[in-house]
Nucleic acid binder design. Structure first.
Lengths: 202, 202
DNA sequence: GCGTTACCGTAACGTACGTTACGACAGGGA
DNA sequence: TCCCTGTCGTAACGTACGTTACGGTAACGC
């Protein structure tokens, strides 16, 4: 007998609920009961869809990466030049809008959870290294004249800047406003030359 | 009757134990029992010294800021030029050594706790803004010819870079090694001109 | 030396967590 | 129609948490 309900859809809805609770209540408030209440079901259904809490966390973490990754893909393919691709990818990875600030809080929550959960830590490292690789490739496309080592160090610096903006915006959106993030990013991109400079239109 | 034991010393030892547990077990493992065990006492003594868990957390957070602030003060006053002052202050704020990586993990833990605790959040914002002010002053000292707005945005960018390095090192010390952090920081400081360039001696 | 007072370990309480077991219910095959 | 299998809500379990109450103990004032 096949499944009477859509299991994949249920997993996604529960992951979204996990994400929502994590953004609103923070890591200590992320309980199975809170997730079930947000998803409109019971803990029994949650643990019937996922084996345990860690499986739910892992799937929610994968969902977060999937969303950000798809957005980065869209930005990268839509860009006309490598310079705009690099800038838009980095900018959307930061948290310039209120919606992205929620993602930033979720990201910080997963990061803190990963410090005590080896599985989440390994996921986090993998995703972040993939992001560094993506940025490294874009830097190399913008500056083909640079040696690989320079592209790598530049990519690491850019990723650290973006994730730092993410982290700081999560706790202090006033100081680290969207405009301030754009300025900081364009400032860093200015070292790559005019090919990666930001446009006035945003 | 005066206190028979040194209350101040006890608070500091308990805060250090809080810090130690937070670095080792992460935020979920930070319990009063774990802190008491690490400090070599019982939960009764912990809650006799601090009113509740949040008071312990707040004091430990203040201790972390006190240590980093004192280190920054020492670096700043020992520096011979504003350029070296800015560089050393930023570099020690990052996590180039194993010891600082432990601090970085603690910092991330407090950050995640602050997302759900308004008191810790306000503390975090205050400390971070003070750090931004410090960096802004050093940037202005290095480049007196820059307008104030440029100094502010540069300071925000440098702080975001440093905290980003902190965050990423906490979970992936391999990718974000001490050498990589120095390169990324010197790369960003190169935009301030030769006055803030890093010395080969480290 | 004795009463008082502050200190702190012990033990328990209530609560909330993750997890498990069980029963009700609904959809397909014979 | 009857059964059987999968699905999910209900309720409970054991555990660990923050917190509180209480008793023993050691230091100070007299």
């Amino acid at each position: 007998m096949a499944s009477r309900r859509d299991r994949v859809d249920q997993r996604q809805r529960l992951s979204a609920a996990t994400w929502s609770v994590l953004a609103e209540r923070g890591l200590p408030g992320l309980t199975l009961r809170a997730v079930a209440e947000r998803a409109g079901c019971t803990t029994g259904m949650v643990l019937h869809t996922f084996a345990d809490k860690q499986a739910l966390l892992v799937h929610a973490r994968e969902l977060l990466h999937q969303r950000t990754g798809q957005r980065a893909d869209a930005m990268q393919t839509a860009a006309e030049t490598p310079g705009t691709a690099l800038r838009t990818v980095l900018l959307q990875a930061a948290a310039p809008t209120t919606e992205r600030q929620e993602e930033a809080r979720v990201w910080v929550g997963f990061l803190a959870a990963a410090l005590a959960d080896p599985v989440l830590a390994e996921l986090h490292r993998g995703y972040n290294r993939r992001f560094v690789d993506r940025v490294r490739g874009l830097v190399a496309a913008v500056r083909p004249d640079w040696p690989a080592a320079d592209c790598s160090s530049t990519a690491i610096g850019l990723v650290a800047l973006v994730e730092g903006l993410n982290t700081l915006t999560a706790i202090d959106p006033t100081t680290y406003s969207g405009a301030a993030q754009r300025v900081a990013l364009d400032d860093a991109l200015a070292r790559l030359g005019p090919a990666a400079a930001g446009h006035p239109s945003g």
